[in-house]
Design a protein around this nucleic acid. Structure first.
Lengths: 126, 126
DNA sequence: GACGGTCTCCTACAGTTGTAATAGATTCCG
DNA sequence: CGGAATCTATTACAACTGTAGGAGACCGTC
């Protein structure tokens, strides 16, 4: 599977709606983002174009209208962004990052429990 | 405490050496980064200037030379960057992010054990 | 068949980032 | 004192971002 391109913050908003409700026309994306952001039509269409150019999004033409859909999975993008985040902040050490956030961020009891469960599960597989 | 400004990837490299070995002249920063990166002198001096402009770094003049030191703590910056990362990728849910990485990244047995210890400790405080 | 609405494509423009070269000030050495 | 070395400040420039406006193609309606 090919590496996803770098997706900027604003572009991420677009990707989210595409990941949620698969093939959409530009107008539908505009609809989906209305209220959520206050971008003009053209702004969104421009970003769709850029995402196509960097091959994060593919489209199928239907007359004059395009139907857009993600060309990379959300998981791939989260993975890549995560790697680069961890590389910068924690010198690549995922574990250090995890420990940092567990120590410094509020977590509810049930979240802690869930993490513990996931860790127990993980231990089996290692 | 005031919020740290946005620090780019390249700037982060500079900050790291400043965080490690406190007040440094530009030449010393260049020294510290030699071998690690292959940036020209001027590149580094430019970035120091930018970091000063955005108030991530302060300096004290000593003749024609400046002694630079961080004006924001590493912890502050990691926190801010982390927030924005989690906000974008996981809709602000730190727990979801943690679970994602535990599930999807390799962890050694001892890392898992350490995380479990930190979680047990955390549970007491919640 | 002309007119208005709608699409995509091209263009714009300022701010940030990466990556420097150059200019001007100052200091040190002989 | 005069030239060389060294600093910071200014300027450069391309790519990427955020945020659009306008042009030209096309489609449906009167």
């Amino acid at each position: 599977m090919k590496l996803p391109p770098r997706i900027s913050a604003a572009e991420w908003e677009i990707m989210e709606v595409l990941w949620q409700r698969a093939p959409l026309t530009a107008s539908e994306v505009v609809q989906a983002l209305a209220g959520h952001t206050d971008w003009k039509d053209q702004t969104i269409r421009t970003m769709l174009g850029r995402l196509v150019r960097k091959q994060a999004v593919a489209y199928r033409a239907d007359g004059k209208t395009y139907h857009y859909r993600p060309a990379v999975t959300r998981a791939q993008c989260v993975h890549t962004a995560g790697q680069s985040f961890v590389a910068r902040m924690f010198d690549g050490a995922t574990a250090a990052m995890l420990i940092h956030f567990v120590k410094n961020q509020p977590l509810t009891v049930s979240e802690i429990a869930e993490l513990q469960a996931v860790l127990r599960e993980k231990k089996k597989g290692v």
